[in-house]
Amino acid sequence: YFQGQLNAMAHQIQEMFPQVPYHLVLQDLQLTRSVEITTDNILEGRI
């Protein structure tokens, strides 16, 4: 994955969860590489 793709995914998640800091979303995406998994992590309070 290149950074631009991760940034696009992070923006997509931020639209759904504007209360979660962008850098935390991006940090999780770098591990998961998945909008779905990061979204689940937010919903389950891991982020």
Rank of each mutant, 00 (worst) to 15 (best):
S34V: 03
R33Y: 13
I47P: 03
M9S: 05
G4D: 14
H11G: 08
L26A: 03
D28P: 05
I47C: 05
D40N: 15
R46Y: 07
H11Q: 13
G4K: 14
T38A: 00
S34H: 03
T32E: 01
N41C: 06
Q14I: 14
F17A: 01
E15Y: 10
I42Y: 03
G45A: 05
I13C: 03
F2V: 12
M16H: 08
Q27E: 12
L31M: 13
Q12L: 12
I37R: 13
Q14D: 02
P18D: 03
D28Q: 03
I47Q: 02
Q30A: 11
R46M: 07
N7C: 12
V20I: 14
Y1N: 13
R46C: 06
E44S: 15
F2Y: 12
D40R: 15
V25P: 00
T39H: 05
V35A: 09
I47H: 02
T32G: 04
F2N: 15
Q14H: 15
V20Q: 02
V35H: 05
A10G: 05
Q27D: 08
L29R: 01
V20D: 01
F2W: 15
F17G: 00
F2I: 12
P21V: 04
V25A: 05
L24P: 01
A8I: 13
H11P: 01
N41R: 08
G4Y: 12
T39K: 12
V35P: 08
L6I: 10
R33K: 14
D40H: 15
Q30R: 13
T39V: 15
N41H: 09
T38I: 01
Y1E: 13
L6S: 02
V25S: 00
N7M: 15
T32R: 01
P21I: 06
E44G: 11
Q3G: 08
D28Y: 03
Q14R: 11
F2A: 12
I47S: 02
L43Q: 08
V25E: 00
Q30W: 14
R46L: 08
A8P: 04
I42W: 04
R46W: 07
L26R: 05
A10M: 08
G45P: 01
L26C: 05
T32H: 06
Q19W: 15
G45W: 05
T38C: 04
I13D: 00
Q30M: 15
Q14M: 15
Q3V: 09
V35M: 10
V25Q: 00
Q14Y: 13
E15V: 12
Q5G: 10
Q5M: 14
P18M: 04
L26I: 11
V25G: 00
D28T: 03
T32S: 06
M16D: 05
Q19S: 12
N7E: 15
R46D: 03
L24H: 06
L43P: 00
L6N: 02
Q19M: 12
F17M: 03
P18C: 05
M16K: 13
